[in-house]
């Protein structure tokens, strides 16, 4: 039974993890934070699995809250050398643009526009209303549009 449940979590991991990790990376701008938050979320899922109704949604929520807590813990310090990551262009440009957003704007746009998570889930992750999520999304999209398509704007 335990194996069965762990197999279920592993199946969710296989289907969700790549997108989850990339979304976390976009949000945190840091591969280490993304990996730590994802691993910790799945570890907690294994530990608390009996009480979890929607495992995928639960894991997304927990992973992003963990990443947010880590970012907050680090304050506004960024990783020492943003050019150190081995990521293809134009990912550095995108991550740099995402960094100019407020944390909640960034979280909303990454979760909803990139990972297709519903706004209700974004609202639950942040702890705000869906109306607020829509405002975050709009402000984030406007800024990204300016930064990524019209550098002179």
């Amino acid at each position: 039974m335990v194996d069965e449940r762990q197999a279920h979590i592993e199946a969710v991991y296989r289907s969700e993890f790549p997108k989850l990790w990339r979304a976390l990376y976009g949000y945190a701008g840091d591969a280490e934070i993304a990996s730590d938050a994802a691993a910790e979320a799945f570890a907690r899922a294994i530990r608390d699995q009996d009480g979890i109704r929607d495992l995928a949604a639960w894991t997304w929520r927990v992973a992003f809250r963990l990443a947010a807590a880590e970012l907050r813990r680090r304050g506004t310090h960024l990783p020492p050398d943003p050019t150190a990551y081995e990521v293809p262009h134009p990912v550095p440009e995108l991550v740099a643009a995402l960094r100019t957003l407020s944390p909640n704007q960034r979280l909303a746009v990454v979760l909803h526009d990139y990972a297709d998570r519903p706004t209700s889930e974004v609202a639950e992750t942040i702890g705000c209303s869906k109306a607020t999520v829509h405002v975050h999304l709009s402000q984030a999209r406007r800024r990204l549009r300016t930064l990524l398509e019209d550098p002179d704007a």
Binding site: F17, P18, W21, P88, D113
Partner: peptide, 25 residues
């Protein structure tokens, strides 16, 4: 807006399943 974020798909995530199963959260 979705298109702008698509480059994230080109980032290769590491494997953390083994870590998740072996850590004590």
């Amino acid at each position: 807006a979705k298109q702008r974020l698509r480059p994230l798909d080109h980032v290769d995530p590491p494997e953390v399943w083994h870590r998740a199963t072996s850590m004590q959260p």
